[in-house]
């Protein structure tokens, strides 16, 4: 019996050696001198990043680079680090990352830069170890635009409420801070009924919170939701209660998911940016850096438009309004 095992192992080893020796003959190193620019996302297989991948593919075609997108199967910072480590060892030219966790990427970014790999980030302006960060919205303008949109549908005075993803999501809370500041001077008639409610990443919870709001504040006229599931949850509640005419809901939504609500009026308007543009812009900037072109304030990124540059942060202002008429044609 032991002999049999030995025999199996030995056969395997011999076969292995044979393949090993034959391999170099097969492998022909015929690689073009195209830049390899890789986009690393938080998690693969969700609509937001599927849409982002379309931007990567478009960039690959338009700029003549070898650009593609990879990402972990779970939104786990540890997995993202592993993927970037493998990319470093592969020797790619540039890595464009939407971080799960900015801090956990610092050591691995440092290793990448030691090898001369260009690092571009998105949604992580304070990231250490990057070459440039790209933001597709100007946070202050985005906040102001959100309040303007609310007023467009509910009028310049009345009671309203605000949803955020959670109290620890920096971006959402920044928007609310800025928006409230703006509303104080521009729309003094608006009255926030309660503190920001953390339910924007959970549709069921957003629906339940909306039900409670309707009960507690019968005069409520509007809701702004940050976090991509808040507004749809609110719209669902309004539909059930038959209050879609009385209360206006606006905020972050995925167009495909929100289309039905936008059409029946339970959701008035979505406000977002297009992740495909983010990936397209990251790849473009990476290519400019590899080509040793200088970036400048006021330069134009194809399909994104004019951007401003301050320090190592590139900002465009391309917030996207999602309405009943364009929700389905946006394709994400």
């Amino acid at each position: 019996m032991g002999k049999k095992m030995l025999l199996v192992t030995r056969t395997l080893l011999i076969v292995a050696c044979a393949i090993f020796m034959a391999l170099p003959l097969v492998s022909v190193a015929a690689q073009g001198k195209k830049y390899e620019i890789v986009t690393v996302v938080k998690i693969t297989g969700i609509p937001w990043f599927n849409r982002m991948e379309e931007g990567v593919k478009k960039a690959a075609k338009d700029f003549g680079v070898n650009a593609y997108q990879v990402g972990p199967s779970d939104a786990d910072p540890a997995q993202q680090v592993r993927i970037i480590e493998d990319l470093i060892s592969k020797g790619v030219d540039a890595i464009c990352v939407t971080p799960n966790d900015a801090k956990s990427l610092e050591p691995v970014f440092e290793r990448a830069r030691k090898q001369g790999i260009v690092i571009i980030t998105h949604e992580s302006p304070d990231q250490k170890g990057k070459d440039y960060d790209i933001e597709l919205i100007d946070n202050i303008k985005f906040a102001q635009h959100s309040w303007d949109t609310l007023v467009k549908y509910m009028g310049p005075s009345g009671q309203y409420a605000v949803f955020v993803g959670s109290l620890t999501v920096p971006l959402h809370n920044l928007w609310v801070d800025e928006g409230l500041k703006y509303a104080k001077t521009k729309y003094p008639g608006l009255q926030l009924v309660t503190e920001r409610i953390p339910c924007g990443e959970d549709q069921e919870l957003a629906k339940q919170k909306t039900m409670e709001l309707i009960k507690a504040y019968p005069n409520l006229k509007g809701i702004i939701g940050f976090g991509s599931l808040g507004p749809t949850g609110a719209a669902q509640a309004l539909k059930e209660k038959g209050l879609t005419k009385q209360i206006a809901v606006v905020g972050n939504v995925m167009p495909g998911q929100a289309a039905a609500y936008l059409k029946d009026g339970s959701l008035k308007q979505g406000i977002l940016w297009d992740p495909a543009n983010a990936a397209y812009a990251m790849t473009w900037v990476a290519k400019q850096l590899l080509d040793k072109n200088k970036l400048s304030d006021g330069m134009t990124i194809p399909s994104v438009g004019k951007v401003s540059l301050s320090g190592d942060i590139i900002t465009a202002d391309v917030a996207l309004d999602i309405t009943a008429s364009n929700a389905e044609s946006l394709g994400f």
Partner: peptide, 17 residues
Amino acid sequence: IMISRFNSAKSDYGASY
């Protein structure tokens, strides 16, 4: 090893492991 590699500690690192 993990917090040294990431230069940071958090409650959900390696949650998928």
